[in-house]
Design a protein around this nucleic acid. Sequence first.
DNA 1: ATGATCTCCTGAGCGC
DNA 2: TGCGCTCAGGAGATCA
Length: 290
Amino acid sequence: MRLGQEPATGTLKSAHAPTCPVPELPEVETIRRGLERELVGRRVEAAEACGGPLRSPSPLPLGRLAGRRFAAARRHAKFLLLDLDRGVLVVHLGMTGKLLFAAQGGPRRAHTHLVLRLDDGRELRYVDPRRFGMLRLYRDARDVEEARHYGIDALDPALDDAVLGALLQRSRAPLKAFLLDQTKVAGLGNIYACEALWRAGLSPRRLARNTPASRVPALRGAIVGVLHDSLAQGGTSFNDYVDHIGQPGRFLLDLAVFQRDGGACRRCDADVRRIVQSGRSTFFCPGCQR
DNA sequence: ATGATCTCCTGAGCGC
DNA sequence: TGCGCTCAGGAGATCA
């Protein structure tokens, strides 16, 4: 799932292991940093679409990609915003999306959807087996709907206790649903939402607006903390990606509750439980998350 | 307007 | 072993 080299042979293994490496904010940020080093300054010599359609609303206008040069790599929540000298290529990796560098003309992995031939002899490829990803090309950075529609990025320093508290007060959803709602705080997925609530000692079933003001700092600290911890380890994994194909950074992350139902909570020794909220698995400790 | 539910898709993992 | 079923997940569309 990371930015890396296309393996010479063999297939990606354990891509759908129980702790499936779904790209979330830390993974996307890690990839962004890699693209900043590897892609910015490169010119697209040719663009080719292949494979089935993604979730993109319309086919990518490939003609407008050719000849463009990458100027910057930004991120908003789980979206990569790749600025070109004219326009912006927006990438969402969905569940299984990967951006891979490969030698020009080399064998292509199944489910390759986009190939950008670069001016340095390489190709940048978008590979996505489940096709939940999204590729969109905008003429102007101000037109990027994904950035406008989404709420404040979870790692934006502007997300202070007062801002988070106000967002919580305006919501009638349970805390878990609140954290997954990208229009409120953007960037948390299922894993980090569960882990952040455990760290904060807050029940996922508690209504967001019933979060006492005194506990807002703990929740904000938990959100930022779990993302930073993961980011630190995602970066580690990124650096030696070539030797660890299919070994997600999250493997290294110390998960307290996610997919640990039936196990003992390390804080209070109660049994970790799994429930379903909004059609998504929630893992939490009923003993110490109130 | 808001929150809940459905939908898309593939492959892992299970039971038979 | 091999088939068929269930499940997981993010986000847009749709429903209540």
